[in-house]
Amino acid sequence: MSTSPTLPVDEALPRLSELSIVDVRTPGEFATGHLPGAVNIPLDRVEARLADLRQAADRRPLLLVCASGARSEKAAVTLASHGIPATSLAGGTRGWSTAGHPLTYPPGPVRGVWAMERQVRFTAGAVVLLGLLLGLSVHPAFSLLSAAIAGGLVFSALTDTCGMAVVLGRLPWNRRGEGDVRPR
């Protein structure tokens, strides 16, 4: 996979007002804090929103953001394959907040939604334990459930994709609507 251009946090801060900022995390993650002025278009919706993203990129440079920079780089590569230039924020929102820069929160109470990586680790661990417990107490064939998760984790690491994250991203707490990058 080719890498996309990245913008370090210290260079992004003074340029926020001249950028169209698109956060590609799930809506649940977005609600736990995002860059000022960011709109939310989850990674799995980027291709469906190409027309809007192209218009936004024509107005101002696109800065893509996620938790660590990995998903935003994937989104930038996807957009580049469609002729839409975009840059990824190096370090993502973690790098942004670690540098002491403010995050914006939606109005109302903030629900504690775990980051997608944490949701994947929890789910994978729970399914592996369930498979082992059922394999020991009910039938040995249930151990195959643990083996399937292990195989999925190896595949995920080798391909730098995560099917479990795609599935978890469709759960209600990770789906809350997405931002509008069109001018108002």
Rank of each mutant, 00 (worst) to 15 (best):
A150T: 10
G100M: 07
G95H: 05
G179W: 02
V77M: 03
A57S: 15
W173Q: 13
D52Y: 04
T6L: 08
E73T: 08
I84M: 06
G177W: 09
L19I: 07
T32V: 05
L43C: 04
I41H: 04
T87Y: 03
L62P: 02
S88V: 08
P61T: 12
I21D: 03
F122P: 07
G37S: 12
I149K: 04
R175N: 13
P106D: 14
L64A: 07
L136N: 11
G163H: 09
L103T: 14
V154N: 12
R15N: 11
L129K: 11
M164E: 11
A124D: 07
G100A: 09
V65S: 00
G100N: 00
V22G: 03
T3C: 06
A157G: 15
E18Y: 00
L130E: 03
S81D: 15
G91V: 04
C162D: 13
W96E: 07
L16M: 13
G37M: 07
R60P: 01
R176P: 04
A157E: 13
R111W: 10
P61Q: 06
V46C: 03
I41T: 09
A80I: 06
D44L: 00
P140D: 11
V120H: 02
T3A: 14
Q55F: 03
G83R: 10
G83E: 07
E18I: 02
S2L: 10
E117L: 11
D10S: 13
T123D: 07
Q55G: 01
L134P: 08
A141S: 14
P14I: 04
G152P: 10
D58A: 15
A12C: 13
Q119P: 10
E117S: 09
H139S: 14
A76C: 05
L50V: 13
A12Q: 07
R118C: 11
P109T: 13
G131I: 09
V127E: 02
